[in-house]
Design a protein around this nucleic acid. Structure first.
Lengths: 140, 140
DNA sequence: GATGGGGCTTCCAGTTACTGGAATGTCAAG
DNA sequence: CTTGACATTCCAGTAACTGGAAGCCCCATC
């Protein structure tokens, strides 16, 4: 099958498939006489594997590692789990960072009256003028 | 003050300050006879403004908009709020995406025994072999 | 006066994971 | 025979920096 078919079966755009190949993430596939890449269903399995792994946020380096483990029939599941745990920790870090941003931002938005007046706690906070509400001393 | 001092007072590295200037986010500052950038405390205010805005995840384009609003004394707070709401929505989108990844990943990790055996639900899921537990039919 | 260690300048390149576009070649249908 | 959809390669751009090289500038010390 051609790259277009492999693309629609794997969910990866043709450009991305070529890109992964160029990066060495995938072996170069066989070519037809006209120079077109020819993909087997085993190739499509690899592509889908990558598509799912990337969908879970694994970096391309992680994907490389996971593909190597996938191909290694004598792998230990502990090695796979380690890669996944690393990724989980990374996701947790990002979620925590975003939640912290969200907390501050939501507070500022709530305190902004959002009308035609120029007076604005969002700008004030960014300018370092006012402290956010939850950083102020509680009343009594 | 020189760029190093402005950097430590604003929390932005010198490289980043020059980068922002090159992008047009900041006006080029005055220069001393030796060619060094000279920053005023007003300049440092701008830098800190940027540092905080970037810390809340605003893009550089958003920062530009916010700086413009900051400088516009006749702005309406509604305009500022609109930028912030956009950013909040973006953050929520990212959090949702990460949480979905986290959900799947945590489930896979939990189901992987993580020992020396090659058998691994993480690999199986990526390869499209097994369905995750929460996608399976509940028992009875 | 030479030297050494910062800090400052510029510019170029690399990062991540693609994506868009140009120029060109191939194939099947009408 | 032409049109349109596919395929190929290569170059460039994205976001927001960051690292490094090559070269001034300034101050202190020997």
């Amino acid at each position: 099958m051609n790259i277009g078919e492999a693309a629609s079966q794997s969910g990866l755009p043709p450009k991305t498939i070529r890109y992964y190949e160029g990066c060495g993430l995938l072996d170069a596939p066989a070519r037809d006489e006209n120079g077109y890449r020819r993909y087997s269903s085993a190739d499509v399995h690899m592509l889908r594997f990558l598509q799912r792994a990337r969908g879970l946020g694994f970096t391309m380096a992680d994907c490389q590692e996971l593909l190597d483990l996938y191909r290694d029939k004598r792998r230990s599941s502990a090695d796979v789990q380690a890669v996944a745990r690393r990724q989980l920790a990374e996701i947790d870090r990002k979620i925590a960072e975003l939640r912290s941003m969200r907390h501050t931002l939501a507070d500022l938005i709530e305190r902004c009256h959002g009308d035609e007046r120029p007076d604005c706690p969002i700008i004030d906070d960014l300018a370092g003028i006012a402290a956010p509400a939850d950083a102020m001393e509680p009343r009594r």
